[in-house]
Design a protein around this nucleic acid. Structure first.
Lengths: 207, 207
DNA sequence: CGACTAAACGAAAGGCTTTCGTTTTAGTAT
DNA sequence: ATACTAAAACGAAAGCCTTTCGTTTAGTCG
């Protein structure tokens, strides 16, 4: 075929197609991506370096497709709530993407910017030294876990027929899975914020 | 070759070999598994139903290889600390397994038993109704996130050369990655326990 | 006009999981 | 003992996947 008059592939179109595949099927592959755009697999490598770059493009896309409002750093609790919720909502819109990003280094500037805002909020709250990274890790674990929960199979815990009465009762009280995820996130967000506040209370004047 | 006088494969040996491969390379495959045991790929299917079953066997193995001490349900904070730490330590011994288990339903009775203990501890703390599952989810997110952190690339956040001063300063204070992970887990465990205590309204026993 | 780059293509290498049919052995029932 | 069934090995192959390579054609800059 040779080079076409107008490019058939763009990074934008590639990202859009890959995200649609992930939303539909939980994954994407070069054969399916190529078929969706109407080109051959190998042509894709003229625009991106490989699978990992597409994954990082997807991370950028979901974070930036719905920008979070400017954070007010004079109120650290509110700031943290906005940031954590923005992160979680990005994955809530595309739950099946979360498992694919777990192993990747985060390099996208827009996403790094979100972590910069997190670090600022934590410093303004009063954390310093290595506690800042520890707090970021805690928040990150919680947000990522909540995102993974949205992608998890409908039954995360599948106890055997006999025994485990307390867990089964708790699961019975949980309600439908969508509502369960929402409530669990709100609950967990309160726990994390409250726990951070308690940490500050206990060590107010420490350097 | 036909059926051998003594079986060449056992579920135990399969699990051990798969875990070694995961520890060494971050994944396992049927060809590598077969080569390690000295059999052919297809023979493995005479002992397990497929890849997913092996993953669940691995989950069982790492949780049971170092049993946690009996929990004292009269002290919910201590009980939770023991359980969460047991979960995290299991993955700390095999960090690269965590990403592989993210998508799987949990069916193994020993692991379900750990969640039963979690549910008991939370009820004895005073949680009820759907808050029990919400609290389990929060704890699960945190523990899984901490486990994933151990498997993450040495640089989780890789900011561009320009900008992001607060995040970069925080990362500079974090110290070597192994110590960072340990401190972040201790910090996060305090946050989660403290946040749960705050949710209860502070009417429980004082520390 | 010539050289170089960009962007498409097909083919192929080398991975992976799983299925299928075949062969040999073990256990069991008549 | 003889047959029958189940267990456990094998090789081959189907059907996925990512990535590389060489080839072809179109645009661009001297």
């Amino acid at each position: 075929m040779g080079r076409p008059l107008l490019p058939l592939i763009s990074v934008e179109a590639l990202t859009t197609a890959a995200l649609e595949l992930v939303d539909e099927s939980g994954d994407f592959s070069f054969p399916k991506l190529a078929k969706k755009i109407g080109v051959s697999q190998s042509s894709i490598y003229n625009h991106v370096s490989g699978r990992d770059e597409i994954l990082e493009l997807l991370r950028h896309r979901i974070i930036t497709e719905e920008p979070y409002p400017p954070v007010d750093h004079s109120e650290w609790e509110g700031a943290l709530r906005v940031l954590i919720r923005a992160y979680r909502d990005a994955f809530a819109r595309h739950p099946r993407l979360a498992p694919l990003l777990v192993l990747q280094s985060i390099t996208d500037p827009a996403v790094i910017g979100l972590y910069e805002d997190l670090a600022l909020a934590l410093e303004s709250a009063g954390f310093s030294g290595r506690d800042v990274v520890a707090a970021i890790s805690t928040i990150d674990s919680f947000a990522l876990g909540a995102a993974l929960d949205l992608a998890a199979p409908e039954v995360v815990w599948d106890p055997p027929a006999e025994g485990y009465p307390t867990l089964k009762r708790a699961l019975g009280n949980a309600g439908p899975s969508e509502e369960r995820g929402g409530h669990a996130f709100d609950f967990g967000l309160d726990v994390v914020i409250g726990g951070l506040r308690a940490k500050l209370g206990g060590q107010e004047t420490r350097a």
